[in-house]
Design a binder for these strands. Structure first.
Lengths: 255, 255
DNA sequence: GCTTTCCCTTGATCCCGATCAAGGGATTGG
DNA sequence: CCAATCCCTTGATCGGGATCAAGGGAAAGC
């Protein structure tokens, strides 16, 4: 059975002011009246399913999208096809920010699991932000946040072993889930090993092997998509250690 | 001799409206009157020299910086010292965008060669952008551009060999120099091999070896910091090829 | 219900790039 | 002017991860 349209329309249609994500999303810092205005331009569609597309590389840019529930992956395709995963997006995160500059989407976005998505026409958002300074400020903040996250990812990919990369991925996921009030240590991965591998710049086999190694070491339980982190501290220290191992650090002063 | 203050103050003090970078920088799309207003909040200091610091990781965020002439590197330091280079910045590029979200600089920025820098207090820029819609738009565009560039870098680091990474670096540099009206095939690198290596996630020795290999292949001439690209097309095709090699691509259809 | 297909895991081998080691050339400082 | 230092280059060795190969198990399609 595919079309489980029974998913509560209440969940889908919640206005911004009642949305549990308000603190993470655009409404942050806005007065109730301003949220009301923002609410007026947000389009809420019925839930999308695994494989559905939000936009494709090359599409003209019209709207930003926000994940309400579920998860999304963004990816770029080379001239010959094939894909490089650029990011995984959880509830409250904005998608499409990289398209503002050129007015054309530089990457594609598809749905990883049944998800509710808000669409926000950018032209309207922009002019609204011009009338609501705190919305403008929040938009600057969200764009800046995205830049910071990308830099973090560069750090992770810069010079790190497979273990460090996967640990970094899991720790980041865990932290973001906790922020959303979900379990930080027990969750289901909505993406395949192949997608994780592409994201981390590794081979599928390596991802699988490192999962096994982490399990042997007692860091986590893994059964297909179900992950239970047993020793988050150990994983965090793998990521932290990476920093100093790879970059010599302050010299021990001459004798 | 250190203090070569003889550098023409004319170059330093040019107002935005006379700056050759206007098309790349914040003034883009603004009316002359609006540029005048922007000009009022820009601080122009005397030239900075190699090793001077614009801001450090952890500093409170007050201003954005724009390179007028010269070049800048941004980098993050791990808890134990040691640095990971995050980016190299050429004239017209904004620095510090990643600090808006948290109000604290997430990375450090230092000067690679004698450079002229404009400082723009962000609070003033933000409120000005609220009165000038086209400035707001340009700020959104520049933030978005930064996100797009980071994504491009992720693509480069994702899954690529040393040759592909260095080729990508050179091609990107070449393109950016051309945009600024400089030679796309003959230039001096303002950063050391070590800094390039850190940026690309490689060892210094590897960077050196790949430079040599490119020279043997006739792709470029290299003498210390002086680079002359002889076969830009070859370098570009190395980058392009990477895409399809690493990501299988459309399957050739079953027999 | 059975086959097909995809996804994941594990094993074996090979290669690229990190690391170790050394030396030359340019710049800096005494 | 010479010594010290830093930066870059080249050579030799080693190891981690990609690749090749195989097999099991779950979901999907007939």
């Amino acid at each position: 059975m595919r079309a489980r349209k029974v998913i509560s329309f209440d969940t889908i249609r919640v206005a911004c002011k009642n949305c549990t994500l308000a603190a993470l999303c655009l409404p942050r810092g806005l007065t109730p009246e301003d949220v009301e205005q923002l609410d007026g331009i947000v389009k809420r569609s019925k839930p999308l399913h695994r494989g559905d597309s939000l936009f494709c590389q090359g599409d003209p840019f019209r709207s930003l999208f926000v994940v309400k529930t579920g998860s999304i992956k963004t990816y770029a395709t080379g001239p010959e096809g094939g894909e490089q995963v650029l990011g995984f997006h959880l509830p409250g995160e904005l998608i499409g920010l990289d398209a503002i500059e050129k007015g054309v989407h530089a990457c594609s976005a598809t749905v990883l699991e049944t998800s509710a998505i808000c669409e926000i026409p950018f032209a309207q958002l922009e002019s609204l932000s011009n009338r609501i300074p705190s919305l403008q400020h929040q938009l600057y903040r969200l764009l800046s946040k995205e830049i910071g996250q990308d830099a973090e990812m560069l750090l992770l990919l810069g010079k790190k072993s497979a273990e460090e990369r996967l640990a970094g991925f899991l720790v980041s996921l865990s932290r973001r889930l906790r922020q959303r009030g979900l379990s930080a240590t027990d969750f289901y991965l909505s993406m395949s090993r192949h997608e994780i591998a592409s994201y981390l710049g590794l081979a599928v086999e390596t991802v699988s092997r490192v999962f096994s190694r982490f399990h042997e070491e007692g860091f986590l339980e893994v059964e297909r998509k179900h992950i239970q982190l047993r020793d988050l501290t150990a994983l965090e220290s793998i990521v932290a250690k990476a920093m100093m191992d790879h970059h010599p650090g302050s010299k021990p002063a001459q004798p």
